Computed example of a mutant assay.
Amino acid sequence: MASPNQVESMIKAALPDAEVQIQDLTGGGDHYQAVVVSSAFEGKTLVQQHQMVYRAVGTAMSTEEIHALALKTYTPESWAQTSQSA
């Protein structure tokens, strides 16, 4: 199973400017939620943003080190707006 730090490292390797928050949803190390904020998402649809993250962790997901990954992706601007409304 992949650790939260490993998942974060995989995402940051593909998106070096990303701010990444990983939460283990089950305590078993195979179901995660990730919040990813990156300027690389600018101009991309939500589906394209998620595809970028899934490509980053693709090997771990195909070998079932990660069974499930829930994603929330934001550009820095949309993250700032989300943070202000919270």
Results as ranks from 00 to 15, higher is better:
31 H>I: 05
60 A>E: 15
15 L>G: 05
53 V>E: 00
41 F>T: 00
58 G>D: 04
18 A>S: 14
45 T>E: 03
45 T>C: 13
46 L>V: 04
9 S>P: 07
39 S>R: 10
37 V>K: 03
3 S>I: 13
30 D>M: 04
57 V>M: 12
63 T>H: 10
30 D>A: 02
31 H>T: 07
1 M>S: 14
71 L>R: 07
55 R>A: 06
1 M>Y: 04
64 E>R: 09
59 T>K: 15
50 H>F: 07
42 E>Q: 13
8 E>M: 11
22 I>V: 13
74 Y>N: 00
56 A>R: 04
10 M>G: 04
85 S>K: 07
67 H>W: 02
26 T>W: 07
52 M>S: 04
51 Q>C: 10
58 G>A: 11
79 W>F: 08
62 S>K: 13
57 V>I: 12
44 K>L: 11
34 A>C: 10
60 A>N: 09
61 M>R: 11
7 V>I: 15
71 L>M: 13
68 A>K: 14
76 P>A: 05
35 V>W: 02
34 A>G: 05
21 Q>H: 09
60 A>S: 13
41 F>E: 00
39 S>Y: 05
75 T>H: 14
2 A>M: 14
10 M>Q: 08
64 E>W: 04
55 R>H: 02
71 L>G: 02
11 I>T: 05
84 Q>R: 07
6 Q>V: 14
8 E>T: 07
38 S>M: 09
27 G>H: 13
50 H>V: 05
10 M>T: 04
12 K>A: 08
74 Y>R: 00
65 E>Y: 00
7 V>E: 10
56 A>S: 03
56 A>N: 02
12 K>M: 08
65 E>I: 08
73 T>R: 08
55 R>Q: 00
27 G>W: 07
22 I>Q: 09
30 D>L: 00
47 V>T: 03
55 R>G: 06
37 V>L: 04
40 A>G: 11
55 R>W: 00
75 T>Q: 14
19 E>I: 15
17 D>E: 13
18 A>C: 12
25 L>P: 15
70 A>F: 07
73 T>E: 00
46 L>F: 06
